[in-house]
Amino acid sequence: MTTMRTEPDTGPPVSWSLVVPLKPLGLAKSRLAPALGGTARARLALAFAQDTVAAALACAAVRDVVVVTDDARAGAALAALGARVTEDTPAAGLNAALVHGARTVRTARPGAALAALNADLPALRPAELERVLFAAAAHPLAFLADAAGIGTTLLAAGPDASFTPCFGGPSRARHAAAGAVELTPGAVPGVRRDVDTPADLRAACELGAGPHTSAALAALRGAAVPAPRTSPTPPG
């Protein structure tokens, strides 16, 4: 049985390095195939990552963002936002990419506080992410379950804590079994809402997609995707 703990809104002041993995765009978001062709999926995958990284960099609790990707186009676009990009030299899957990114951070800053964050959070809000990271700072290891309650969207390892990600499939149970505390920091829907399916995309749009995703969806008008709900100001 998974144990959940209610967390305070704030924790010890910690400045986090986020590691964001992104597979080559041509291989991304295959579960959107019923609604979108390959070119459209690649465009949306990049837009999701751009909104995720932009929101993360705008979060007061985030020191920097390291993107692990072998996709040159994505790397250039995310570097332009201020992320540090490193190649996925292990090329051995999601968790190996995250470990590589974490090693990159801790080689430069031993003992850094790390958090792995999914790249497909188009409705991410900096304030929500800050709440999650403040709650995570109270524990050596902590994670946030996705909206479905099966996977994980964020895994945090505090200063000097070992970092052993178990993403993929039912990762919520695996992270809990590995000793990470499941965070319940209140309403943070944008941090939980990753996008794999057309239904996920509709739900993210209901929350309010970021500007890159909104622009990509507008350009794909006529495809079988929902129209985004946008607000006058960027997510914050």
Rank of each mutant, 00 (worst) to 15 (best):
P159V: 07
A33T: 15
T2Y: 02
V132P: 10
K29I: 02
A204F: 12
A142K: 05
A119L: 05
L220S: 11
L129T: 00
L25T: 02
D200N: 13
G26C: 03
N118Q: 08
A219S: 15
V68D: 05
A79V: 06
R131E: 00
C166T: 10
P189G: 06
A116H: 06
L183G: 06
R125H: 00
V188Y: 01
D120Y: 01
A148L: 08
R174E: 06
F134A: 10
S214P: 05
D160Y: 09
A135Y: 06
L32H: 03
P110M: 06
F143Q: 01
L36E: 10
P235C: 13
L78N: 06
A96R: 03
L201R: 09
H139T: 03
A123N: 08
R84A: 12
R43H: 11
T6G: 09
L133T: 02
A76Q: 14
V19C: 05
L36K: 08
A96I: 11
L154V: 15
A219Q: 12
V225K: 10
V14M: 04
R125M: 05
R63K: 08
L32E: 01
L78F: 07
A157E: 02
T86E: 13
A203L: 12
D196C: 03
L46D: 11
P13C: 04
E128G: 00
S171E: 07
A199S: 10
A115V: 13
C59E: 00
P235T: 04
V62K: 03
V99S: 08
V62F: 02
L144M: 09
P185M: 09
L25V: 02
A156P: 07
G186L: 06
W16G: 05
R125V: 00
R109N: 14
A56G: 04
D51L: 01
P12K: 09
L114C: 10
P24M: 03
F167Q: 04
S162T: 13
T197K: 11
A224K: 14
A209P: 13
G222M: 10
V14G: 02
H212D: 05
S30H: 01
M4I: 13
P211L: 02
A157R: 00
A227G: 13
R103D: 15
A113R: 07
A92N: 11
R174D: 09
M4Q: 12
S15G: 15
M4H: 13
F48I: 04
F134Q: 08
D194G: 14
L94E: 15
A216F: 05
L183Y: 03
A91S: 15
A91P: 03
P122C: 08
R109Q: 14
A42Y: 09
A96S: 11
T86D: 10
S30T: 09
T213M: 08
C59L: 02
K23D: 06
T2L: 15
R109T: 15
P140V: 07
R63P: 03
V225R: 12
R63S: 14
T89S: 14
G38E: 15
A142F: 02
R106I: 10
V67P: 01
S17H: 15
M1E: 02
A178V: 04
T233P: 02
A161N: 11
V105N: 08
L124F: 01
H175D: 11
A60R: 03
A203K: 11
P189H: 01
A47M: 09
A209T: 13
A55Y: 00
L133E: 04
R31H: 08
T197A: 12
L183N: 10
A113C: 11
R103S: 15
